[in-house]
């Protein structure tokens, strides 16, 4: 065995840029774990989520922040929830497995996605040009989430503040996605 050490590298090398009225940054330590509800185990799943995170499991299109404020649970589809949390290490799935004690089927999706946060007073203006979802605060208030397409790339958009959005897109097309978001920001600043 060789004694090579593998060092994780973020998809965009820790990108961070300031524009007029908008900030865009990569979140390199964001862990994403997909949790599927076992068929017939819906009640046990709901109880385990409540016990582990102190909040109810979110419905599709909604999210809830755990009581300790560290994990955001996002309802992706019927019987599918994503747990999104800051975590530095290759064992994000084990963290959720430990919390749920077998009440959900977990898959580590951390390295599948690139995570960007866009925030600032012009974030909404920049996003509305590439996002087909109505992001007006009345239609898409804080905590709402949606899986959609931006510039032909599958994207999850989540509003985590009045002027702040989390964007997740495929790691393999991270630079194309960044280019799309950057271009849209440049068009409004």
């Amino acid at each position: 065995m060789s004694d090579l050490t593998l060092t994780p590298a973020p998809a965009l090398g820790g990108y961070r840029e300031r524009f007029e009225g908008v900030q865009l940054e990569e979140l390199p330590n964001l862990a994403i774990v997909s949790i599927a509800t076992p068929r017939g185990g819906e009640a046990e799943f709901a109880a385990a989520i409540e016990k582990a995170f102190g909040v109810a499991a979110p419905k599709p299109g909604h999210s809830s922040l755990s009581k300790d404020g560290r994990t955001r649970l996002v309802g992706m589809a019927p019987d599918q929830t994503f747990a999104v949390f800051t975590h530095d290490g290759p064992d994000a799935r084990q963290v959720i497995d430990g919390a749920l004690d077998g009440a959900g089927y977990t898959t580590d999706q951390t390295d599948v996605w690139v995570s960007l946060r866009i925030d600032g007073p012009r974030a909404h203006t920049a996003l509305e040009r590439i996002c087909p979802i109505d992001l007006h605060p009345d239609a898409f208030p804080e905590g709402r989430a949606a899986r959609t397409v931006m510039e032909h790339l599958g994207t999850i958009v989540l509003r985590d503040g009045a002027d702040s959005f989390l964007l997740l897109s495929a790691h393999s097309s991270a630079e194309s996605f960044l280019h799309a978001v950057e271009t849209s920001i440049r068009n409004v600043t």
Binding site: K59, P60, G61, P132, D134, T148, V149
Partner: peptide
């Protein structure tokens, strides 16, 4: 029915 109005391009 669960997510509200969505563009047909998503389907």
């Amino acid at each position: 029915p669960l997510l509200g109005p969505r563009d047909a391009a998503e389907f």
